[in-house]
Amino acid sequence: MNNTTKGVLFALFATMLWSVNMVIASGLKGHIPPVGLAFWRWTLAYIVLAPFAIKSTIKSFKIVKKHIRYLCITAVLGITIFNTLIYFAGKTTSAVNLSLIAISIPLFIVVLSRIIFKEKVSNIKIVGIATIITGVLVLISKGSLQAILHINFTIGDLLMLVACFFFAYYTILVRQKPEELTTKVFLFSVFFIGTIVLLPFYMYEHIYYQKVIFDTKTVLVTAYVGICASLISYYLWNEAIRLIGTSKTALIYYLIPVFSGILAYFFLNQAILPTQIISMAIIISGLFISNKN
Rank of each mutant, 00 (worst) to 15 (best):
I101F: 06
A75H: 06
I103L: 03
A95H: 01
G90W: 00
L85V: 00
H67R: 08
L107F: 09
L77R: 09
I109A: 13
V111D: 04
S94N: 09
L100N: 00
P106V: 04
F108V: 11
R69K: 15
S113E: 06
G78N: 03
K62L: 12
S94P: 04
S99I: 09
G90K: 08
T74M: 05
L98Q: 09
T80H: 03
I79P: 07
N97G: 10
L100F: 05
K66N: 15
I73H: 10
I63L: 11
G90E: 14
L112P: 09
K62M: 15
I81S: 11
S99W: 07
K62Q: 15
F88G: 04
C72L: 15
T84D: 05
S104E: 12
A95G: 11
I86S: 00
I116W: 03
L98V: 15
I105T: 14
V76E: 08
I103N: 10
V76T: 04
V96W: 13
S99Q: 10
T93Y: 08
I63R: 12
K91M: 14
V76G: 05
Y87P: 00
L71S: 13
I115L: 12
I103D: 01
Y87Q: 00
V64D: 09
H67T: 14
R69D: 08
V64E: 06
I109H: 05
L85M: 04
I109M: 15
I86N: 05
V96E: 10
I115C: 02
V64H: 06
G90H: 01
A89D: 03
K66Q: 14
S104T: 15
A89M: 03
I115F: 08
I79K: 08
Y70T: 11
G78V: 02
V110T: 14
I63Y: 09
T92C: 02
K62T: 15
V110C: 15
I86L: 05
I81A: 11
Y70V: 06
A95V: 08
T74V: 12
F88L: 08
I103C: 07
A75K: 03
N97I: 14
I63K: 15
Y87F: 11
K65T: 13
P106A: 05
V110K: 04
L112H: 02
